[in-house]
């Protein structure tokens, strides 16, 4: 039920965003001023408008847009003269690999360090990890990216500055992308782990004679994962924010950079196709997270 609802909202928000792009961009003025060079002649503009149907009333344009969408026709890129959806789908895997690796690293790190910190709240290790994760959550990703490139690529020459290639090309982008999610998740894990470790059922486990590892990783971890998963849904969206920056800085040919480029080049169809692909990805992720939630918590299963 939960994921049914969430999927619906993601679809709705996608539709909302597409509508927003469609209407706002057409209401803020003659699209030909957006798409043609400033010195284009009036005749050029008229021809352009007719070619793309911009001279029709807006509801006609919208109807055509919806019909095209239903026929899986997502328009043609103005800058590359090919299917916008093809371009978006080519870019997407690059983002997907980057983001999923980052999420996995952030998750593993957050669980490890968060649990470690929760063992003794207020202790030395906890203070240290807290400051570490707070710093992670407070650093602007683009700045870290630039500084790391300066140190490891420009000055030391150990790592490539940008582009796609072997494992070395992944190190800085991944580090930058992991930083904030790790910081945010780490604090959530810490908090929910402290909660779980102070709950009565942990006392029962101690009274049974269970070892500390068993109590942390069997009894408390599964319970403390529930709030973490709820946060992870919002976090995935955050990761894509980071991806936009990282891809721009490192020339990573993913969907984030594609979108920025499309915005700069005013390539309408590509923006819309990218939004669609991104929204679908988030939708699938939310479904996966909801399944994880149901697997972890029997109370949701029987509700």
């Amino acid at each position: 039920m939960r994921f049914f609802k969430r999927s619906l909202f993601t679809l709705l928000s996608m539709a909302g965003l597409l509508l927003l792009v469609f209407f706002l961009s057409r209401m803020t003025g003659d699209p030909s001023y957006l798409f043609l060079p400033l010195d284009a002649s009036a005749a050029d503009r008229a021809a352009f408008s007719q070619l793309h149907g911009f001279d029709d009333p807006i509801y006609v344009q919208f109807g055509r847009y919806v019909v095209d969408l239903l026929n899986l026709d997502f328009g043609t890129s103005l800058s590359q003269q090919r299917s916008a959806m093809d371009i978006a789908l080519e870019a997407f895997p690059h983002t997907l690999t980057l983001v999923s690796m980052a999420l996995a690293i952030a998750f593993a790190g957050a669980i490890l360090f968060g649990s470690l910190a929760a063992r003794k709240p207020g202790g030395m290790i906890d203070r240290l990890i807290s400051i570490l994760s707070l710093t992670g959550a407070s650093t602007p990703d683009f700045w870290v990216a630039i500084i790391l490139v300066l140190i490891f690529a420009v000055s030391l020459g150990w790592l490539p500055t940008s582009g796609v290639g072997g494992p070395l090309y992944w190190i800085i982008p991944l580090f930058v992308l992991v930083l904030r999610p790790f910081g945010l998740l780490g604090q959530v894990v810490r908090g929910s782990m402290i909660n779980a470790l102070s709950s009565p059922y942990v006392k029962t486990a101690y009274a049974k004679g269970a070892s500390e590892q068993k109590i942390i990783f069997v009894h408390a971890l599964r319970n403390s994962m529930l709030p973490v998963i709820t946060v992870a849904g919002d976090l995935a969206a955050n990761l894509l924010n980071g991806a936009v920056i990282v891809e721009t800085v490192f020339g990573w040919p993913g969907i984030g950079r594609l979108m920025i480029d499309a915005i700069m080049q005013r390539d309408f169809a590509v923006i819309q196709a990218s939004i669609l692909v991104t929204a679908c990805a988030i939708l699938i992720l939310n479904i996966l997270l909801d399944i994880a939630y149901v697997v972890l918590d029997p109370r949701v299963r029987h509700a």
């Binding site: 059922y201 006392k203 029962t204 009894h219 599964r222 319970n223 029997p298 109370r299």
Partner: peptide
């Protein structure tokens, strides 16, 4: 313990 609901782990059978 006093409160068996709280003292049993909710996610294990």
């Amino acid at each position: 313990f006093q409160d068996p609901l709280a003292h049993l782990n909710p996610v294990y059978s």
